[in-house]
């Protein structure tokens, strides 16, 4: 198999918050169809990198190329880039004043300018895909955490993105609903979606990721296939981190 084209390329990316160095020179790449999991302790910079990817945060140094083109600065061009990336948040961030299906229709109707019927069709298909057709009329307040996150995934997919960004999608969930969200993500991965996933779910990373990147203190300490990271980590700090999670590397 020939290597797929690079979709996202991070070159020496730096990000500061005042004196705090959130990212100090991060370089990695994501290829089309790959699932890349970013792991590491809290505050190690993995969420910051994800948020830089769709320009919710601005870079303080280095370069980020999407499809070979550096991320633009002008608002209109940034919006175009964001339309091609879906994002799923830790706290779901569903719009509470809209029903599940209206949440999913929001992007297509507001941003893509699809007709009501067109965006409804698209939204229904996506709710079916995440197994929530019967909840289409529910407001987020009347959905469980796992259901809300599945709607949030459908909402992001409604823009037909080329890349999906997941920012700790299961961290705010009750243990019993984590599985249903991970299953939806697994299905997406199997369909060939390019995914960048910040996660603490090591089993998921191990099973689904093509490439795992380990962060610590704003730097990548190790990256490679899951087999390497989880079974034979090269770095002592990777072993330490996995050991703290109870992972026996």
């Amino acid at each position: 198999m020939t290597a797929a084209s690079v979709v996202l390329q991070y070159r020496n990316v730096r990000k500061l918050y005042g004196d705090f160095v959130a990212l100090s020179g991060v370089s990695m790449e994501v290829r089309r169809g790959q699932v890349v999991c970013l792991i590491g302790p809290s505050g190690s910079g993995k969420s910051t990198l994800l948020r830089c990817t769709n320009a919710l945060e601005t870079l303080d140094g280095g370069e980020l190329l999407f499809d070979g083109v550096p991320l633009p600065k002008e608002p209109a061009a940034i919006r175009k880039v964001r339309q091609r990336m879906g994002m799923v948040f830790q706290n779901f961030e569903l719009f509470p004043h809209k029903t599940a299906i209206q949440n999913v229709m929001m992007g297509p109707s507001t941003v893509l300018g699809l007709s009501d019927a067109q965006s409804r069709d698209r939204a229904e298909a996506l709710l079916a895909k995440v197994g929530l057709v019967e909840k289409a009329g529910n407001y987020p307040a009347n959905l469980s955490g796992g259901q809300q996150q599945r709607v949030a995934i459908a909402r992001a997919l409604a823009m037909e993105p080329e890349v999906m960004l997941f920012d700790e999608p299961t961290s705010a969930l009750d243990p019993e609903t984590i599985g249903e969200v991970l299953n939806v993500m697994k299905t997406l991965a199997d369909d060939g979606m390019t995914m960048v996933v910040v996660t603490h779910e090591m089993t998921f990373a191990r099973r689904v990721a093509d490439h795992v990147v380990v962060f610590d203190s704003g730097q990548i300490i190790e990256q490679g296939p899951p087999g390497q990271i989880f079974d034979a980590p090269h770095q002592a700090r990777t072993r330490d981190f996995l050991g703290h999670l109870g992972w026996d590397a």
């Binding site: 769709n54 919710l56 608002p75 919006r79 175009k80 964001r82 339309q83 990336m85 879906g86 994002m87 948040f89 706290n91 961030e93 569903l94 719009f95 929001m106 992007g107 507001t110 941003v111 949030a152 909402r155 992001a156 823009m159």
Partner: peptide, 20 residues
Amino acid sequence: GQTEAALALGMSEAQAFRKI
């Protein structure tokens, strides 16, 4: 986060404010 979710969909700041 509500504004960010709207921006992530590709909305403008003005749309995010008005719609969300």
